[in-house]
Design a protein around this nucleic acid. Structure first.
Lengths: 202, 202
DNA sequence: GGTGACACGTGACAC
DNA sequence: TGTGTCACGTGTCAC
């Protein structure tokens, strides 16, 4: 029951002409909106009702759900990253044929980095250190080596993961050195703990 | 220019009464829809335009973004879950102070080289091999790495003692890789045993 | 027959 | 001065 004004004359004619365009424009707008609704509906899973209010409502629910899930997963990933670092440990003592080994790892007492391990073969000592990537820690290790009268023959520093360093050193044991392998490991480890502690507090 | 029919008589009166309720109902429906739009707008971050079409459009974008993120995180977690499961086994394998769960070293069974150890942090794997110095063994290790879809990022080979090699490798775990850390260790060790055995017999 | 959802044309308002 | 957006009342269709 609407008045059709297409045939109107006088002052209405302008309104009518504009009105036609207006109708077209409005149609277009509605069409766009409708498309978006359809697109949205196709994305949201588990839609039972397809009316607009329900689509919007379910979209809101689904969104919150997704955000919650992202949050949980992010925490999970963060946690597991730490776990990886913590679990990457070794037992405390190994005894090979002609090689004597000792590691700082003790599952009952301490599961934290830095991890230090050393092995001796003749006059050579192989030292492995795994610690957090932090500036100056290599220099600190070298300083300790010097203090222990260990002449570095070769050193390799590899980044591992996002924040770990794996350091492998082959050194020569000088004659005046009378440290045991355990002492070497403990001295190195202790120095690194102090160093990293003081550097992270800065 | 609409016809007001409230005062209509006769056959129109019923239509009119129903019409009033109809108007109310429609108002209510619109109100609900409007509320949902407002609620949705308040959830979507970074909205510049606030018109309905834009809100829907940005909602769709945001949704896809979130889903993508969830997918990525889930993969990440899946990867790390495998690692955690492996790492979790470690304590149970530790008897006293002698066994390394990730290492091929087992004092009760086999005290011989080569010794292989691996650990994982995120997508990185750190592999340590200690074996007899013998020609071609590095090449053999690299061949195995390739077969296991491990992309070598860094490798360090240090001579230790008179006849030992200490090899440390940081590699990237490719997505198609579905080996466990134990499988990596065993495969490498087995290949080295075969290789060294056949090369020493020559 | 009544409830609910939709698209439409229209007037109003903003930039 | 238009160009785009909105809310409104209405007719219509489906269950």
């Amino acid at each position: 029951m609407k008045m059709k004004r297409s045939g109107g004359g006088g002052a209405f004619s302008r309104t009518t002409l504009h009105g036609q365009e207006h109708v077209i424009a409005e149609r277009k707008r509605r069409e766009k909106l409708s498309q978006r609704f359809i697109a949205l509906s196709s994305i949201i899973p588990g839609l039972t009702k397809l009316d607009k209010a329900s689509v919007l409502g379910d979209t809101i629910k689904y969104l919150k759900q997704l955000e919650e899930r992202v949050k949980i997963l992010e925490e999970e990933v963060a946690t597991r990253t730490v776990e990886s670092a913590i679990f990457a440990k070794k037992p405390s003592l190994q005894r090979g044929d002609s090689v004597v080994s000792f590691s700082s790892y003790d599952p009952l007492i301490d599961q934290q980095l830095p991890e230090v391990e050393a092995r001796v073969s003749g006059k050579n000592v192989l030292i492995k250190v795994q610690c957090e990537k932090c500036e100056g820690c290599i220099k600190e290790v070298m300083k300790q080596m010097e203090e222990m009268n260990l002449t570095t023959l070769n050193i390799s520093v590899l980044a591992f993961g996002s924040s770990l360093l794996d350091v492998t050193i082959v050194a020569q044991i000088e004659n005046e050195n009378c440290l045991t392998i355990e002492e070497i490991v403990e001295k190195l480890r202790h120095a690194l703990i102090i160093f990293i502690g003081s550097s992270s507090r800065r």
